[in-house]
Design a protein around this nucleic acid. Structure first.
Length: 303
DNA sequence: ACGCCTACCTGCTTGC
DNA sequence: TGCAAGCAGGTAGGCG
């Protein structure tokens, strides 16, 4: 479900609706939702009375910044949703954590498949040099991070940041033999792209998902860079793509699913050339593309 | 580095 | 109708 555009939509909704609100109490109904090192009981106790000062996003996590500097991270994974419920709203059997706000509303963490994780961290965190090559992570480094900066220390750049230029993408692709689809899904390569937007970006850039990353021409890298940013921006503009469980913090689905070019359109006509969209499996993930528009270099493609 | 597997969970769709 | 298999947007850890 939630990839960068969906998480961004939730974060913006929450910024509007719960920034400034105080958490009166938290109820954890599925303990494993709470990430180590906070035992679930302590998690609730530590949140009592905290005020949410600002809501943002990093990668696919919603960040709830607390007024005292701590940060709560919510990784929605497959079916997680954060929904603001007005007083009197019927309970939700899939609500795994309920934050009761001092004003009577509830902020509900709903998650059918229970894959999502919520953490509570101290501010800051030591920025570590990004590791390449075979350097092993030391014992001290491998421990569970306690500061929010450490949670995202290994994540790649935000694709919508100004600093994410085509040149920067080119530098990251250099020397990588992996397939484009795999790399786009790799959160240490770029943060926030998931299965839907990876397929959409590759279609838009007219690049085959199995293309080896380091074989792209400069022009193709530029197309990929523009395509990734364009599909993510379009997703945000439409409040996200909804399949099954995704909803914004208002509980409403987004509109972007109907605007997707290839994702889950197997057999339907390509919006560019009219030929049928194919589905293959790459890295155990279902992958949709147009074999004509996104031909490999040695295959027949558009003239 | 890279690909592949398994695990984590539940619900919905598909095919017999 | 019933039941089982297959599928789902994510990610972590392990193996070769």
């Amino acid at each position: 479900m939630p990839e960068l555009p969906e998480v961004e939509t939730v974060a913006r909704d929450l910024q509007r609706w719960v920034a400034g609100a105080t958490i009166a109490d938290a109820e954890v109904r599925w303990e494993r939702t709470i990430r180590h090192p906070q035992p679930a009981e302590r998690f609730a106790a530590e949140l009592r009375g905290a005020t949410i000062s600002r809501v943002g996003r990093r990668a696919k996590s919603v960040l709830l910044h607390l007024a005292d500097g701590r940060v709560m991270t919510v990784a929605l994974r497959m079916t997680g949703a954060l929904i603001v419920a007005a007083p009197g709203t019927p309970d939700d059997r899939y609500a795994r954590v309920v934050f009761r706000l001092a004003d009577g509303r509830e902020l509900r963490y709903r998650d059918v498949r229970k894959f999502g994780r919520i953490g509570l961290w101290e501010r800051g965190g030591v920025p570590r040099p990004r590791r390449r090559g075979g350097a092993r992570r030391g014992v001290a480094e491998a421990r569970e991070p306690y500061r929010v900066g450490d949670v995202f220390a290994r994540h790649g750049p935000e694709p919508l940041a100004h600093s994410f230029s085509a040149a920067r993408l080119a530098a990251r692709l250099k020397g990588r033999s992996a397939r484009l689809k795999t790399l786009l899904l790799d959160q240490t390569f770029i943060a926030g792209v998931g299965n839907i937007y990876a397929d959409e970006a590759l279609w838009r850039a007219r690049l085959h998902p199995l293309r080896a990353a380091d074989t792209l021409t400069q022009e193709e890298v530029r197309r990929l860079h523009r395509a990734v940013r364009a599909v993510l921006r379009q997703g945000i503009a439409n409040r996200g793509a909804s399949f099954a469980d995704y909803v914004g913090a208002d509980g409403e689905p987004g509109d972007n699913a109907e605007r997707l070019a290839v994702y889950r359109r197997t057999g339907q006509p390509c919006l560019r050339c009219g030929r049928p969209i194919s589905r293959i499996v790459v890295g155990q993930r279902s992958t949709h593309f147009c074999p004509h528009c996104q031909a490999l270099p040695d295959e027949p493609g558009p003239a």
